[in-house]
Protein backbone atom coordinates (compact mmCIF):
# COMPACT_ATOMS: atom_id res chain seq x y z
CA UNK A 1 0.00 0.00 0.00
CA UNK A 2 1.33 3.42 -0.96
CA UNK A 3 2.33 5.63 2.01
CA UNK A 4 0.69 9.07 1.97
CA UNK A 5 2.86 11.94 3.23
CA UNK A 6 0.87 14.72 4.96
CA UNK A 7 0.99 18.02 3.08
CA UNK A 8 2.51 19.98 6.01
CA UNK A 9 5.41 17.52 6.20
CA UNK A 10 6.00 17.84 2.45
CA UNK A 11 6.01 21.64 2.73
CA UNK A 12 8.40 21.45 5.72
CA UNK A 13 10.71 19.14 3.76
CA UNK A 14 10.63 21.43 0.71
CA UNK A 15 11.39 24.48 2.88
CA UNK A 16 14.34 22.70 4.52
CA UNK A 17 15.74 21.67 1.15
CA UNK A 18 15.33 25.23 -0.20
CA UNK A 19 17.19 26.62 2.83
CA UNK A 20 19.96 24.06 2.39
CA UNK A 21 20.26 24.94 -1.26
CA UNK A 22 20.30 28.68 -0.47
CA UNK A 23 23.05 28.21 2.16
CA UNK A 24 25.12 26.07 -0.20
CA UNK A 25 24.77 28.74 -2.91
CA UNK A 26 25.86 31.47 -0.47
CA UNK A 27 28.87 29.37 0.60
CA UNK A 28 29.86 28.85 -3.02
CA UNK A 29 29.40 32.58 -3.69
CA UNK A 30 31.69 33.41 -0.76
CA UNK A 31 34.35 30.97 -1.99
CA UNK A 32 34.15 32.35 -5.53
CA UNK A 33 34.29 35.91 -4.14
CA UNK A 34 37.44 34.97 -2.21
CA UNK A 35 39.06 33.49 -5.30
CA UNK A 36 38.33 36.60 -7.37
CA UNK A 37 39.60 38.91 -4.59
CA UNK A 38 42.79 36.86 -4.39
CA UNK A 39 43.16 37.00 -8.16
CA UNK A 40 42.72 40.78 -8.17
CA UNK A 41 45.26 41.18 -5.33
CA UNK A 42 47.73 38.94 -7.17
CA UNK A 43 47.34 41.06 -10.32
CA UNK A 44 48.06 44.22 -8.31
CA UNK A 45 51.05 42.47 -6.72
CA UNK A 46 52.46 41.51 -10.14
CA UNK A 47 51.92 45.05 -11.44
CA UNK A 48 53.70 46.54 -8.42
CA UNK A 49 56.59 44.09 -8.77
CA UNK A 50 56.98 45.04 -12.43
CA UNK A 51 56.88 48.76 -11.59
CA UNK A 52 59.36 48.49 -8.70
CA UNK A 53 61.75 46.39 -10.83
CA UNK A 54 62.47 49.39 -13.01
CA UNK A 55 62.92 51.85 -10.14
CA UNK A 56 66.33 53.47 -9.74
CA UNK A 57 67.14 51.99 -6.35
CA UNK A 58 67.68 48.33 -7.21
CA UNK A 59 69.03 46.23 -4.33
CA UNK A 60 71.98 44.67 -6.17
CA UNK A 61 73.62 43.01 -3.15
CA UNK A 62 70.43 41.30 -1.99
CA UNK A 63 69.68 40.25 -5.60
CA UNK A 64 73.12 38.58 -5.90
CA UNK A 65 72.62 36.90 -2.52
CA UNK A 66 69.30 35.49 -3.71
CA UNK A 67 70.86 34.33 -7.01
CA UNK A 68 73.50 32.44 -5.04
CA UNK A 69 70.90 31.06 -2.67
CA UNK A 70 68.52 29.87 -5.41
CA UNK A 71 71.06 28.90 -8.05
CA UNK A 72 74.06 27.46 -6.28
CA UNK A 73 72.19 25.78 -3.47
CA UNK A 74 69.72 24.09 -5.82
CA UNK A 75 72.47 22.77 -8.07
CA UNK A 76 73.07 19.32 -6.43
CA UNK A 77 69.35 18.54 -6.36
CA UNK A 78 68.84 19.62 -9.97
CA UNK A 79 71.96 17.75 -11.10
CA UNK A 80 70.82 14.51 -9.50
CA UNK A 81 67.27 14.86 -10.85
CA UNK A 82 68.47 15.64 -14.37
CA UNK A 83 70.89 12.70 -14.32
CA UNK A 84 68.25 10.22 -13.13
CA UNK A 85 65.74 11.59 -15.63
CA UNK A 86 68.09 10.94 -18.57
CA UNK A 87 69.08 7.55 -17.21
CA UNK A 88 65.49 6.34 -16.67
CA UNK A 89 64.28 7.69 -20.00
CA UNK A 90 67.05 5.78 -21.79
CA UNK A 91 66.52 2.53 -19.89
CA UNK A 92 62.75 2.67 -20.56
CA UNK A 93 62.99 3.61 -24.26
CA UNK A 94 65.84 1.28 -25.28
CA UNK A 95 63.93 -2.06 -25.51
CA UNK A 96 61.10 -0.49 -27.52
CA UNK A 97 63.49 1.16 -29.98
CA UNK A 98 65.35 -2.15 -30.37
CA UNK A 99 61.99 -3.84 -31.23
CA UNK A 100 61.39 -1.20 -33.92
CA UNK A 101 65.00 -1.47 -35.13
CA UNK A 102 65.54 2.20 -34.37
CA UNK A 103 68.18 2.05 -31.66
CA UNK A 104 70.27 4.68 -33.45
CA UNK A 105 67.44 7.14 -32.80
CA UNK A 106 67.86 6.77 -29.02
CA UNK A 107 70.30 9.66 -28.35
CA UNK A 108 68.32 12.12 -30.47
CA UNK A 109 64.97 11.08 -29.04
CA UNK A 110 66.15 11.38 -25.43
CA UNK A 111 67.88 14.72 -26.11
CA UNK A 112 64.76 16.20 -27.72
CA UNK A 113 62.53 14.89 -24.91
CA UNK A 114 64.80 16.36 -22.26
CA UNK A 115 65.50 19.70 -23.94
CA UNK A 116 61.96 20.39 -25.13
CA UNK A 117 59.86 19.19 -22.24
CA UNK A 118 61.18 16.96 -19.50
CA UNK A 119 64.14 19.12 -18.42
CA UNK A 120 62.25 22.45 -18.16
CA UNK A 121 59.09 21.03 -16.57
CA UNK A 122 60.73 18.66 -14.08
CA UNK A 123 63.28 21.32 -13.05
CA UNK A 124 60.53 23.92 -12.66
CA UNK A 125 58.41 21.56 -10.56
CA UNK A 126 61.36 20.75 -8.31
CA UNK A 127 62.18 24.46 -8.01
CA UNK A 128 58.52 25.18 -7.20
CA UNK A 129 58.98 22.80 -4.27
CA UNK A 130 62.41 23.96 -3.15
CA UNK A 131 62.58 27.65 -4.06
CA UNK A 132 58.83 28.46 -3.97
CA UNK A 133 58.26 26.93 -0.56
CA UNK A 134 61.49 28.50 0.73
CA UNK A 135 60.41 31.98 -0.33
CA UNK A 136 56.87 31.46 1.02
CA UNK A 137 58.09 30.22 4.39
CA UNK A 138 60.84 32.84 4.76
CA UNK A 139 58.63 35.82 3.92
CA UNK A 140 55.72 34.35 5.90
CA UNK A 141 57.93 33.99 8.95
CA UNK A 142 59.25 37.55 8.44
CA UNK A 143 55.66 38.78 8.34
CA UNK A 144 54.67 36.88 11.49
CA UNK A 145 57.71 38.07 13.47
CA UNK A 146 57.18 41.69 12.33
CA UNK A 147 60.50 41.80 10.42
CA UNK A 148 58.75 43.21 7.34
CA UNK A 149 57.13 45.91 9.50
CA UNK A 150 60.53 46.66 11.06
CA UNK A 151 61.98 47.12 7.58
CA UNK A 152 59.17 49.47 6.64
CA UNK A 153 59.55 51.67 9.74
CA UNK A 154 63.29 51.90 9.15
CA UNK A 155 62.39 53.61 5.84
CA UNK A 156 63.41 50.66 3.66
CA UNK A 157 60.97 49.65 0.94
CA UNK A 158 60.38 45.96 1.84
CA UNK A 159 58.78 45.33 -1.52
CA UNK A 160 61.89 46.43 -3.40
CA UNK A 161 64.26 44.71 -0.98
CA UNK A 162 62.45 41.39 -0.51
CA UNK A 163 60.08 40.86 -3.44
CA UNK A 164 61.76 42.36 -6.50
CA UNK A 165 65.13 40.76 -5.72
CA UNK A 166 63.61 37.29 -5.23
CA UNK A 167 61.36 37.41 -8.29
CA UNK A 168 64.18 38.57 -10.59
CA UNK A 169 66.59 36.04 -9.10
CA UNK A 170 64.10 33.18 -9.64
CA UNK A 171 63.37 34.39 -13.19
CA UNK A 172 67.06 34.36 -14.11
CA UNK A 173 68.25 31.34 -12.13
CA UNK A 174 65.66 28.77 -13.25
CA UNK A 175 66.67 28.94 -16.96
CA UNK A 176 70.29 28.35 -15.89
CA UNK A 177 69.25 25.42 -13.70
CA UNK A 178 67.22 24.00 -16.59
CA UNK A 179 70.26 24.15 -18.92
CA UNK A 180 72.31 22.38 -16.26
CA UNK A 181 69.58 19.76 -15.77
CA UNK A 182 69.46 19.22 -19.57
CA UNK A 183 73.22 18.65 -19.67
CA UNK A 184 73.06 16.25 -16.74
CA UNK A 185 70.10 14.48 -18.37
CA UNK A 186 72.06 13.82 -21.58
CA UNK A 187 75.01 12.63 -19.52
CA UNK A 188 72.66 10.30 -17.58
CA UNK A 189 71.27 9.08 -20.89
CA UNK A 190 74.80 8.19 -22.11
CA UNK A 191 75.40 6.25 -18.87
CA UNK A 192 72.04 4.49 -19.45
CA UNK A 193 73.02 3.59 -23.02
CA UNK A 194 76.31 2.16 -21.74
CA UNK A 195 74.65 -0.10 -19.19
CA UNK A 196 73.74 -2.56 -21.93
CA UNK A 197 75.81 -1.29 -24.81
CA UNK A 198 79.07 0.41 -25.60
CA UNK A 199 79.13 3.89 -27.05
CA UNK A 200 81.65 6.69 -26.57
CA UNK A 201 80.45 9.99 -25.09
CA UNK A 202 81.61 11.94 -28.15
CA UNK A 203 79.65 9.72 -30.54
CA UNK A 204 76.58 9.75 -28.28
CA UNK A 205 76.81 13.55 -27.96
CA UNK A 206 77.07 13.98 -31.74
CA UNK A 207 74.13 11.65 -32.37
CA UNK A 208 72.06 13.44 -29.75
CA UNK A 209 72.70 16.95 -31.03
CA UNK A 210 72.42 16.04 -34.71
CA UNK A 211 68.68 15.76 -34.12
CA UNK A 212 68.37 18.93 -32.01
CA UNK A 213 68.17 22.32 -33.65
CA UNK A 214 67.81 25.89 -32.51
CA UNK A 215 64.03 25.70 -32.78
CA UNK A 216 63.98 22.98 -30.12
CA UNK A 217 66.13 24.88 -27.64
CA UNK A 218 64.85 28.46 -27.84
CA UNK A 219 61.11 27.99 -27.13
CA UNK A 220 62.02 25.64 -24.28
CA UNK A 221 64.46 28.15 -22.87
CA UNK A 222 62.08 31.10 -23.21
CA UNK A 223 59.31 29.34 -21.30
CA UNK A 224 61.68 28.67 -18.39
CA UNK A 225 61.92 32.44 -17.75
CA UNK A 226 58.14 32.41 -17.28
CA UNK A 227 58.39 29.34 -15.01
CA UNK A 228 60.92 31.22 -12.88
CA UNK A 229 58.79 34.36 -12.73
CA UNK A 230 55.71 32.32 -11.74
CA UNK A 231 57.59 30.48 -8.96
CA UNK A 232 59.08 33.71 -7.60
CA UNK A 233 55.84 35.69 -7.80
CA UNK A 234 53.63 33.04 -6.20
CA UNK A 235 56.12 32.35 -3.37
CA UNK A 236 56.54 36.06 -2.67
CA UNK A 237 52.80 36.80 -2.86
CA UNK A 238 51.86 34.01 -0.48
CA UNK A 239 54.67 34.81 1.97
CA UNK A 240 54.22 38.59 1.90
CA UNK A 241 50.48 38.28 2.50
CA UNK A 242 50.73 35.59 5.19
CA UNK A 243 48.46 35.97 8.20
CA UNK A 244 49.63 36.82 11.70
CA UNK A 245 49.83 33.40 13.36
CA UNK A 246 52.63 30.83 13.07
CA UNK A 247 50.19 28.54 11.27
CA UNK A 248 50.22 31.04 8.39
CA UNK A 249 53.87 30.24 7.67
CA UNK A 250 53.00 26.62 6.88
CA UNK A 251 49.96 27.67 4.89
CA UNK A 252 52.04 30.17 2.85
CA UNK A 253 54.76 27.58 2.11
CA UNK A 254 52.23 24.93 1.16
CA UNK A 255 50.13 27.23 -1.04
CA UNK A 256 53.29 28.50 -2.77
CA UNK A 257 54.23 24.97 -3.86
CA UNK A 258 50.74 23.90 -4.91
CA UNK A 259 49.85 27.05 -6.86
CA UNK A 260 53.29 27.49 -8.43
CA UNK A 261 53.34 23.83 -9.59
CA UNK A 262 49.88 24.18 -11.09
CA UNK A 263 50.79 27.44 -12.84
CA UNK A 264 53.99 25.89 -14.23
CA UNK A 265 51.88 23.19 -15.91
CA UNK A 266 49.43 25.80 -17.24
CA UNK A 267 52.24 28.04 -18.55
CA UNK A 268 53.78 24.97 -20.20
CA UNK A 269 50.48 24.16 -21.91
CA UNK A 270 50.17 27.72 -23.22
CA UNK A 271 53.83 27.74 -24.33
CA UNK A 272 53.41 24.47 -26.23
CA UNK A 273 50.32 25.81 -27.99
CA UNK A 274 52.14 29.00 -28.99
CA UNK A 275 55.21 27.06 -30.18
CA UNK A 276 52.94 24.77 -32.18
CA UNK A 277 51.31 27.70 -33.94
CA UNK A 278 54.64 29.30 -34.91
Amino acid sequence: MKKIIPIHKAVEFAAKQSMRLANKTLEKKEIMGGIFTDLANFTLFVTRTFRETFSREFEVKEFLRQCFHMGNKSLPLIALTGFILGLVLTIQSRPMLIDFGAITMLPGMVAISIIREMGPVITALICAGKIGSGIGAELGSMRVTEQIDAMEVSATNPFRYLIVTRVIAATLMIPLLVLFADAMGIFGSWIGANLKGDVSFTLYYHQAFSKVDFGDLMPALIKTFFFGAVIGLVGCYKGYHAGRGTESVGIAANASVVIASLLVIIVDLVAVQITDML
Partner: peptide, 29 residues
Amino acid sequence: RKKIGFLFQSGALYDSMNVRENLEFPLRR
Protein backbone atom coordinates in the same frame (compact mmCIF):
# COMPACT_ATOMS: atom_id res chain seq x y z
CA ARG B 1 60.25 57.42 9.94
CA LYS B 2 64.02 57.91 10.23
CA LYS B 3 63.33 60.19 13.20
CA ILE B 4 61.21 57.53 14.90
CA GLY B 5 62.60 54.46 16.63
CA PHE B 6 60.15 51.54 16.92
CA LEU B 7 60.89 48.67 19.28
CA PHE B 8 58.71 45.73 18.28
CA GLN B 9 57.26 43.33 20.83
CA SER B 10 59.14 40.39 19.27
CA GLY B 11 62.31 42.40 18.68
CA ALA B 12 61.90 41.83 14.91
CA LEU B 13 65.62 41.23 14.32
CA TYR B 14 66.35 40.04 10.78
CA ASP B 15 66.95 36.30 11.14
CA SER B 16 69.19 36.01 8.10
CA MET B 17 71.65 38.64 9.37
CA ASN B 18 73.99 38.63 12.37
CA VAL B 19 73.88 41.37 15.01
CA ARG B 20 76.40 43.57 13.16
CA GLU B 21 74.45 43.35 9.88
CA ASN B 22 71.16 44.00 11.69
CA LEU B 23 72.59 47.22 13.11
CA GLU B 24 74.25 48.28 9.86
CA PHE B 25 71.03 47.74 7.88
CA PRO B 26 69.31 51.10 8.65
CA LEU B 27 72.57 53.03 8.13
CA ARG B 28 73.33 51.46 4.76
CA ARG B 29 69.85 52.32 3.55
